[in-house]
Amino acid sequence: MKLRHILLVITLACFTVSLTAQTRRRSAPAPGTTAPKLEDLPKRPLDTIPTSDPETKIILFSNNTWSYYRPSLERLDSLPVYTQHWDTTGVFAYRDIAYNDLPPVVELKLVDDLTQFKSPVTGKVLSKYGPRRRRNHNGVDIPLRPGEPVYATFDGRVRYAKYNTGGYGNLVIVRHRNGLETWNAHLSKLNVKPNDYVKAGQVIGFSGNTGRSRGPHLHYEMRYQDQTFDPEFIVDFETGQLKYQTFALEKSFFNIHSRASEILEEEDEYDLPLLTSNDSGDSTSQDILDQIAEAQQKEKKAAVQQKQAGISSSGAIYHTIKSGDMLGKLAIRYGVTIDQICRLNGITRNTVLRLGKKLRIK
């Protein structure tokens, strides 16, 4: 009886070993091939996870991958900015538009509030925009440690995301709804693909040293219809702050010698009230509204004091438009409201302020 049990155990063991060997042979890759990658396995959606952004959800897949899902942004697919001159294979998308065809000034509405902006990185600009030796330096260089995250500056859609042999290395180009494009070069790794919609602050890649680069850094450009201009007109990279909510992009800024540090001569004391940070280092839309309300309250108080003192307010005050001026900034500077400036000049809040034009303030 014991011998019969022993023979049975041996037989089962041999059968198990044989079956296991056959299974391994069937599952092993054929000679000369490699095992399938995780991303190549069957991909079925398993679950959807909400995020803090109501427009964004995360889909988890059966092959242990995930992706963003933004159904509300699909309506943007038909916008001209995302259909015309939309090239996902080449870096330049506006070859048929010449410099002379561009308008004298383009009003770029950058954000409605600060949640729609994130500095791509924060750090000191090592190499600025402008001529550099025998070639033009069409952006700014910010040194970083390898692998640091690089963020989308504004909401937009990825037009280009791959390795570029022209010197940029791994390059991500994001086009924004106002037509502005931001270029992020020398990345070690890409975190997006063409036609992806991205939100400000989303990680689009990681800093590196790919392409024509002498050390890990981010080469960052801003372009409008392929024309470059100094990104420091708009972003303070050292503090990570946005300088303007609406920016008047002059045609002259597309000159490689047109640098923000040399053109923006106006003092900053009137440039930043709408974008200053609170004690915690963060600024919200409510903070901005509170600052506007405070400025308007000061105006009313000053008007009452003038009336009580018997001071006439009939003397008109004018302001000549300079680069970077916008109605909100002028209202705070002179202690008036935007509506008052519009009423005195017969304009609206959306009117483009022409350089050299005189506006009546009071």
Rank of each mutant, 00 (worst) to 15 (best):
S27G: 00
S67L: 09
G90R: 15
L126R: 12
R95G: 06
G32Y: 11
D47P: 00
W86H: 02
K109W: 04
N138T: 13
K37S: 10
G139T: 13
W66E: 14
S62E: 12
L41P: 08
D112S: 08
S62W: 11
L76M: 11
V140E: 07
L102C: 07
T48I: 15
E107T: 15
H85E: 10
R134W: 08
E39L: 10
L108A: 10
T51N: 06
L60V: 11
A35G: 04
R133D: 11
T34F: 09
P31Y: 00
T33G: 03
V150L: 08
Y99N: 04
Y129N: 02
L41D: 11
S119M: 06
Y94E: 08
D47F: 08
G130L: 05
A152F: 04
V140D: 06
K57L: 15
R133S: 12
K128Y: 14
P50Q: 15
Q116H: 03
G139C: 08
L114V: 10
L114H: 01
L73V: 00
V140T: 08
R132Y: 04
R135S: 13
P80V: 04
V111A: 00
L144Q: 15
D113N: 15
Y69T: 07
A30M: 14
S67D: 15
L144K: 13
P103R: 12
D47Q: 07
T153S: 15
S27K: 13
D96P: 01
V81F: 01
N100W: 09
V105G: 01
P45N: 04
V81Q: 01
L73D: 11
T65L: 09
G147T: 03
I49H: 01
T122E: 05
E148Y: 07
L60A: 09
P50Y: 10
I142E: 02
P45F: 05
R145D: 06
D77V: 02
D87P: 01
H137P: 03
W86I: 02
L73I: 09
T33D: 06
S27W: 06
G139N: 08
F92N: 12
V111Q: 07
T153V: 15
D53Q: 10
K43P: 00
V81H: 01
T34V: 10
